[in-house]
Simulated scan of single mutants.
Amino acid sequence: MANKKKVVVTGFEPFGSHAVNSSWVAVQELERLGLGEEVDLHVCELPVDYLAVQNILPSLWKEHQPQLAVHVGVSGIATSVTLEQYGHNQGYQRLDNRSFCPASRCCMEDGPDEIRSVIDMDMVCKRVSGSNIGITVSVSKDAGRYLCDYTYYTSLHQGQGRSAFVHVPPLGAPYSSGELGRGLQAVIKEMLSLLEAGYTEEELKDNKHCRHREQH
């Protein structure tokens, strides 16, 4: 099919106490499940490395020109599949896997403080929560000022807002790899559905039915 939608989904390599990173496990499970015949899915494991992300993200957008890029990361405090609405430019002080962090403490000098996804995460949350897939979904406005947030901001800038970030809990706390894969599949399908219908954050302000959780 020449008119397939292109979707890029990334997870992260292990870091810190996360010897197995549930984000990449979930993305591999999603790759196995797929997003349907009409979607061309490309997955990629990102290093926990500021400079590498700075180089890889523009390449992914340029090479694949996706309708949507979805980045997945693990959160040690998450107990649900958490949809992030914003990427943030400043406050990056934590060292990456190469013991580096940006001297400027920001993603893009002169960039806006935050960039919001064009996808209304509350609406995605509401739709998935109403589908009884057995996985709790929540919404957050703080992606944590580490590689997750840094990746999200960089991707939102590259894709003019056509990007999403999903935090997943560690494996078994409470979900299995299969459940995380199904959860990812459900939220990404809803994101694509909203994009196709032309819904954006601005147009859906009255749909605020999901609980919010701040990531730290």
Score class of each variant (00 low, 15 high):
154 T>R: 08
32 R>P: 00
43 V>L: 03
122 D>K: 12
49 D>L: 10
156 L>C: 07
8 V>L: 09
61 W>L: 05
216 H>N: 14
118 V>E: 03
12 F>R: 04
102 P>T: 00
44 C>L: 08
48 V>S: 15
27 V>A: 02
134 G>D: 09
86 Y>F: 15
142 D>G: 07
2 A>L: 06
89 N>Q: 08
33 L>F: 00
31 E>F: 13
172 G>N: 13
174 P>V: 02
89 N>Y: 06
201 E>D: 13
30 L>A: 00
153 Y>A: 02
79 T>I: 14
200 T>R: 11
208 K>E: 00
162 R>C: 07
11 G>N: 08
18 H>A: 13
213 R>H: 14
3 N>L: 11
198 G>M: 07
175 Y>N: 11
111 G>M: 12
201 E>Q: 10
26 A>M: 11
141 K>M: 10
146 Y>W: 12
115 I>F: 12
181 G>V: 03
16 G>D: 10
189 K>R: 08
105 R>E: 07
44 C>F: 15
184 L>F: 00
99 S>C: 10
10 T>Y: 07
41 L>P: 08
147 L>I: 07
75 S>H: 15
51 L>C: 08
17 S>F: 11
145 R>Y: 01
57 L>P: 11
145 R>D: 06
98 R>W: 05
89 N>V: 06
210 C>E: 02
96 D>M: 06
133 I>T: 06
206 D>C: 10
70 V>D: 01
108 M>R: 11
74 V>G: 15
105 R>I: 01
23 S>A: 04
84 E>F: 05
86 Y>G: 03
78 A>M: 15
186 A>Q: 09
129 S>T: 04
36 G>C: 06
82 T>A: 10
54 Q>G: 04
105 R>K: 09
176 S>C: 13
130 G>P: 07
47 P>K: 10
199 Y>R: 05
137 V>S: 02
87 G>V: 12
93 Q>E: 09
53 V>F: 05
25 V>N: 06
101 C>G: 09
29 E>G: 15
211 R>T: 13
32 R>C: 00
30 L>Y: 03
111 G>Q: 12
40 D>C: 04
207 N>L: 12
208 K>V: 00
142 D>Y: 13
142 D>T: 15
85 Q>V: 04
33 L>E: 01
62 K>S: 12
206 D>W: 06
29 E>F: 06
137 V>F: 11
131 S>Q: 14
208 K>N: 01
15 F>P: 13
119 I>N: 12
82 T>Q: 14
140 S>H: 13
